[in-house]
Amino acid sequence: MSFKILSKKQLSENVFQLDVEAPLVARSRKAGQFVIVSVDEDAGERIPLTIAGADPQKGSIRLIFQRVGKATAQMADLHEADALGYIAGPLGQPTHIQKFGSVVCVGGGIGNAPLLPIATALKEADNQIISILGARNQELLILEDEFKKISDELIVVTDDGSYGRKALVTEPLKEICSRDSKPDCAITIGPAVMMKFCCETTKGFNVPTQVSLNTIMVDGTGMCGGCRVEVGGQTKFVCVDGPEFDGHQVNFEQMMKRMSAYKALEQKALEKYRDHKCKIGLK
């Protein structure tokens, strides 16, 4: 298998979209599932990325990722017709899709990407979709048009007010939960701290809330346990028990600490990569 990049698009300064050849994954993936991706077959890091979409006919999947460390920087430097080292998946439990009634879908930053296929599947199951999309500023907002198509109501917020409403996502979320007909459930995907506050908001209104977690993983099949989180006082593995959990039960504080485990090492690796790129004359 070649995992060739069929198209590449830069969605914002650090967010990239790749359509990649992965026919087996494209055929079997369901909303909410993720893949493990590596740029280099021999020495690359294994990165878990939620599948943002798929075209089974073309045999391709869509990956949307943020340039954070060395591995994602390297991936962002790839071009059309280049190939990824490998893609393994789909992994994780698919989202439980049924008719709930009205569902609030809250996406933040890059979280809009994994949220889109779930919101789409929920829409197809006849739910009323209220979407709240947040970003730090207009430049960083992604997939607004796609969400417009599937949402019965769409609210966009930015931290700096450069686009949409100047607010954090929790503000409209609170208003929606306060309505006479409060939503039947919520799903929120974004930075851990955003999911944490969304869950605190909905908890007060007793609105069941799913979150999709993206913790540090190695194999993605249950073997390493690096992705473990505490949910309702019990240890769960994001890769095989998740990635979606009852957000009201997740220990976010602990999870955020675990997610920063390699920050210093990753920073060094990224600097080294940039330095190397300068020396060999890449832009």
């Binding site: 298998m1 087996l24 994954v25 079997s28 599932q33 490998y86 893609i87 393994a88 998946g89 789909p90 992994l91 099949t221």
Partner: peptide, 9 residues
Amino acid sequence: CNFIVGRTR
């Protein structure tokens, strides 16, 4: 490789 029986097929 990269084929997870149960998930890929």
